[in-house]
Design a protein around this nucleic acid. Structure first.
Lengths: 137, 137
DNA sequence: CCTGCATCCCGTAGCTACTACGGGTTCAAG
DNA sequence: CTTGAACCCGTAGTAGCTACGGGATGCAGG
């Protein structure tokens, strides 16, 4: 069981946040997570603030924010440092990027769908898929 | 000017296909493009078949096919090796992946849009974006 | 022929965001 | 105190390129 006085181990933090253990160490190495205190034996001992921070990071990553965006959002989330305008700038820039990707994927879906549909699957001299890929321009 | 007798240089191939010169060398290193003949001085000398192959690769990559898929498609595009069914399998698997990504991005767009919309941009005690990111679960 | 400069050569390292490996240490339950 | 799970760290691998740098080559003009 968890003994609160000894802190939260990296494995427990991983389970609590759904973030891979190796990823937590990676986040520490890139200074996205602060280096936590250690036990006598050198094991990481986290506390509730680390759980919160990592959960925040996970949510942001799930929403597709890049690491540098997350870093900026974390800075802006600090008390007395809150600048909602900057936060919104980051979020809306990301939203625009998502929309661009979306547009791209929709176009892509249409082409693939149209081509696959025209493919009979039989051994015919002309395959519409290969045809499309091989055509100039 | 292009002197056909001396072959097409890697730079000309790059321009002709819109593929980055470094990328062409990379494709050669992973055996996606065959090693072309060289000039006395060691410069790559391509011909029309290389242009076709690279154009095919570029189209497939633009449609989001992974390198290994492209490799398979190229094999299946060889004469007497055409198996339209296999081609369709690759393409429809990719289509499914695209649709999954699409679904994901749509959901993501909705969340971001909803949150950004609720953000006034003013210095308020509660920022809906940070709030969303910081909330548990 | 020769100069000058664009192009090309190759190997290596960097990018994003992790994930995996492996040999050794520590923790905690029984 | 034993034992096995969990943790340590450094390194390398993933996709798919892109960038860098120092040197060799190609080609057009003089």
């Amino acid at each position: 069981m968890v003994t609160a006085s000894r802190g939260i181990s990296i494995g427990q933090l991983a389970k609590a946040t759904g973030v891979n253990l190796e990823t937590i160490r990676y986040y520490e190495s890139i200074r996205l997570m602060p280096p936590p205190p250690r036990t006598r034996g050198g094991h990481r001992a986290y506390d509730r603030t680390h759980v919160q921070r990592l959960a925040f990071i996970r949510h942001a990553r799930e929403l597709g924010f890049g690491i540098e965006d997350v870093r900026a959002l974390l800075r802006l989330a600090e008390p007395d440092r809150r600048s909602c305008a900057e936060v919104r700038d980051i979020a809306s820039a990301h939203l625009a990027a998502v929309r661009a990707k979306l547009t791209h994927l929709v176009a892509l879906e249409r082409i693939l769908d149209g081509t696959v549909e025209r493919c009979s699957g039989e051994q015919v001299p002309i395959c519409p898929i290969l045809d499309m890929l091989g055509r100039p321009s």
